[in-house]
């Protein structure tokens, strides 16, 4: 049985900008199974970021149903969404978003602080994830002492530290040179090979080529879904 990890039907999202209504999503229905590696593509304003925020539990749909890992998200309150994000979703951002003047290990352990895990276990789990992304030697370095690629590895370790159901990466290579980008994408490939569900938002075709399925958005709708 291959039940959907992400199951959404007729998702819409309307932003009110003063008098105008912006239809960011116009009825999106899609299923993503556990273990998939999906690239979300499309020009800016196509709705791909809105869709990503939605499945990252950062935003709620205006209408439609959204079920992730067996839980219905469309009616959750802000704090319930926060708890959901903290346990089921790992985020990797284009700008890394590490806490400045904070050691790599503390950055990687940050999500565990909010899920009530003891300090010693936090350290242990953050260490394991930093080793997994090849930063075992630099756990006490601050972000300013790390290269862009290394910072993004810390961010990946942080995204994985809570054993999430989904790894969400928003233009993870957007701020990196091509060689470093390739190294980061290899980490994603390896993670997916080990069973992690990865959803990657990008507008670069060669980055998207690493994924096994490409979903293309335009004007708030899915215009292409190929595997």
């Amino acid at each position: 049985m291959t039940a959907s990890l992400i199951h959404c039907r007729n998702l819409t999202r309307i932003y009110k900008m003063g008098e105008n209504e912006v239809h960011a999503l116009r009825g999106v229905s899609v299923d993503i199974r556990r273990g998939e590696y999906v690239a979300i593509m499309g020009p800016s304003g196509s709705g791909k970021s809105t869709f990503m925020n939605m499945i990252g539990a950062l935003d709620r749909p205006t209408s439609g149903t959204l079920e992730i890992d067996g839980e219905r998200l469309e009616a959750m309150k802000p704090d319930e969404l926060a708890a959901f994000r903290g346990k089921r979703v790992g985020f990797v951002f284009q700008q890394f978003n590490l806490l400045p003047r904070t050691a790599a290990i503390d950055n990687a352990a940050l999500p565990l602080v909010y899920s009530g895990i003891s300090a010693s276990e936090r350290k242990q789990r953050a260490e394991a994830r930093l080793r997994q992304v090849g930063l075992g030697e630099r756990m006490d370095h601050h972000p300013s002492q790390l290269s862009g690629g290394q910072q993004q590895r810390v961010a990946i370790a942080r995204a994985l530290v809570n054993d999430p159901a989904i790894l969400l990466a928003d233009e993870p290579t957007g701020a990196l040179d091509s060689q470093t980008s390739e190294e980061i994408l290899q980490i994603f490939d390896q993670l997916n090979h080990d069973g992690m569900t990865i959803i990657l938002v990008t507008h670069e075709p060669d980055v998207a080529a690493h994924a096994k399925r490409q979903i293309v958005f335009r004007d708030g709708e899915i215009v292409e879904d190929r595997t």
Binding site: G56, L58, P78, D79, A82, A83, R85, G86, K87, F91, N97, L99, L110, P111, Y114, S115, R158, N162
Partner: peptide
């Protein structure tokens, strides 16, 4: 603000 956004994204509740 970005730090707050990040903390919210990784599971911080409003009260946190």
């Amino acid at each position: 603000t970005r730090e707050i956004g990040l903390r919210l994204a990784v599971g911080a509740k409003r009260a946190d």
